[in-house]
Each structure stands twice: as structure tokens, then as C-alpha cells.
């Protein structure tokens, strides 16, 4: 089962590292830690008309965490905070309730379905979303 975690799609996503880096003048920057493993995700965002104009992430984490951040890097620009919250809810359902419904507009996230069987790794996938949502919350104020 664990072998599924390291399928090609996840590895490719992580290695692509889409959106990795820092923004020079972000509207908000948030860092979130996973106390279990010490992983850390920092997310920079710039908003235009309440939509994500640009983002950048700095991930000190495992392959799953980097893959999730990379998916965000490619799919989050142009979305609103509300849409990101919905995507995270769909991802949480996939991991915690083992749903198999694809998440609209985010086909890459299907690759995380095998993670559902590994509860200790759920937060690895969710950490970049948590960082992004906190950054969006901060940018809104």
C-alpha cells in the first residue's frame, strides 16, 4: 500500500515544484509548522480583485508536502479564498473519508488518494493548503 504513495504522479509533481520561491512584495506571508515532524511551509500571496494574482511557496517538507504545494502553485492562481477553502474541504474528504470524487479543476489531487490509508501523513498533504488559507485570510484584512 505504501508504495502507492510514491507513484510517478506524486514524484513528478514534487519535482516540478511549481510556484516554489518567494514574492518580492506579497500582500501576505504565512508560515505553518507541522509539530509532528518539524516540516514548515511558508506561503506568499498577492491578490487582485480578491483573487490570487501570484503566489510563491517555500517548503521544508516531505515529498507529499512538496507535491501538494506544487499543485497549489499550478492551480491556485486566479482562485478566490472561498474556492481554495472548498478545494481543501474536498481534499480532506478524500483523505479522511476516502472519497474518490475528483476535485473539480484540480486533477493532480487524485494522486493523493492512497494517502488516505496513512493517517499520519494526512497533514503532510494539507499543510500547504493551511498555509495558503492563512495567508489569504491575512491578505483580506
Amino acid at each position: 500500500m505504501s508504495d502507492d504513495l510514491y507513484q510517478q504522479a506524486i514524484t513528478t509533481l514534487a519535482k516540478a515544484a511549481t510556484g516554489a520561491g518567494k514574492l518580492e512584495h506579497p500582500d501576505a506571508c504565512e508560515t505553518v509548522d507541522n509539530p509532528l515532524c518539524g516540516d514548515r511551509v511558508t506561503m506568499d500571496v498577492e491578490l487582485t480583485d480578491n483573487r490570487i494574482a501570484r503566489l510563491a511557496h517555500d517548503v521544508r517538507g516531505c515529498l507529499l508536502c512538496r507535491a501538494a504545494a506544487s499543485a497549489i502553485g499550478s492551480r491556485a492562481p486566479g482562485r478566490t479564498a472561498g474556492e481554495i477553502v472548498q478545494v481543501r474541504a474536498g481534499l480532506q474528504a478524500m483523505l479522511k473519508l476516502c472519497t474518490v470524487d475528483p476535485i473539480d479543476g484540480w486533477p493532480e489531487l487524485t494522486a493523493f488518494q492512497p494517502v488516505a490509508a496513512h493517517k499520519s501523513r494526512h497533514d503532510c498533504v494539507l499543510l500547504p493548503f493551511e498555509a495558503l488559507i492563512r495567508a489569504l485570510d491575512r491578505a483580506a484584512y
Binding site: D3, L36, G38, C62, L63, R121
Partner: peptide, 24 residues
Amino acid sequence: HPHDVSQILDTHNVACRGGHHCAQ
């Protein structure tokens, strides 16, 4: 990453620890 390493070790039926071991 040590969590990825430990997860792959689990597929070899090896139980070991990956992470900061409460010694950050």
C-alpha cells in the same frame, strides 16, 4: 525526507523512526 524514507522502509517491513525524534 526522513518521513518518505521511513514510509518506503515500511514497505520492506522495516519499522524505524523518521523525523526529529523530539530533538529539534
